[in-house]
Simulated assay, not measured.
Amino acid sequence: MKSNKGFSLIELMIAVAIIGILASVAYPSYVQYVAKGARADGLAALLEVANLQEQYYLDNRVYATDMTQLGLASDPYVVENGFYSVDSTGTGSFVAIATALGAQASRDTSCTSIQITDTGVRTPQECWE
């Protein structure tokens, strides 16, 4: 009697189908996780800009109209990972807006634009959670 060692084609195809099903379930969760991680950098940059705006207001009695006045490298300021650009407008009040760039804009469609104001209003609320 001859002993066969290894896998048959049917066994291999069943294993490939199981891996495909698992990947189709796991991939959307992974994309959402990556988008939320990149969003955290955008939120941190917004809070940094809001803090810098308040410091600028204490010194000058107006809010900065240009990001370079806050000591940031460019206007608009692009976060370290490159997924968000942050811009702020102001004089008597300010609104800081983080806009998703590149792949983040398509991955995180509900949070392509995130804002914070001088009064602390954060929109859209679901992006800040």
Score class of each variant (00 low, 15 high):
T68D: 12
Y27S: 11
V79A: 04
A64T: 03
Q53I: 07
V34W: 02
Q55H: 13
A40S: 14
G42P: 05
G37Y: 08
A26W: 07
N51I: 00
V31N: 09
S29T: 08
L70A: 10
A64R: 02
L43E: 08
N51Y: 09
Y63F: 11
L58V: 11
Q55K: 15
Y63V: 05
A45Y: 00
V78T: 14
Q69L: 14
P76A: 01
L46Q: 01
Q32E: 14
F83A: 09
Y57F: 13
A45N: 07
P28M: 11
D75N: 15
F83Q: 06
G37R: 05
A44C: 10
R61K: 11
V79T: 01
A45V: 00
V79M: 06
A26R: 02
L70P: 02
G37F: 05
M67P: 02
Y56M: 05
E54G: 12
A40K: 08
L43M: 11
D59T: 14
R61D: 04
Y33T: 15
L72S: 04
A44L: 09
E54P: 04
G42W: 08
V31S: 14
G71S: 13
A50D: 01
V78C: 12
Y30R: 01
Q55G: 15
V34K: 01
T65L: 13
N60I: 08
P28W: 02
K36W: 04
S74Q: 07
V62D: 03
Y63N: 00
A50L: 07
N51C: 06
N81T: 13
L43T: 01
Y33P: 07
A26N: 08
A35D: 10
Y30V: 12
R61S: 04
G82M: 11
R61A: 00
E48C: 03
A26C: 10
Y27F: 15
G37E: 12
A38R: 00
S29W: 01
Y63D: 01
L43F: 09
Y27Q: 09
Y27E: 10
A73W: 00
Y33A: 15
P28L: 13
P28C: 13
V31M: 13
G71C: 13
A44R: 06
G37N: 13
D75T: 13
A38M: 09
M67Q: 08
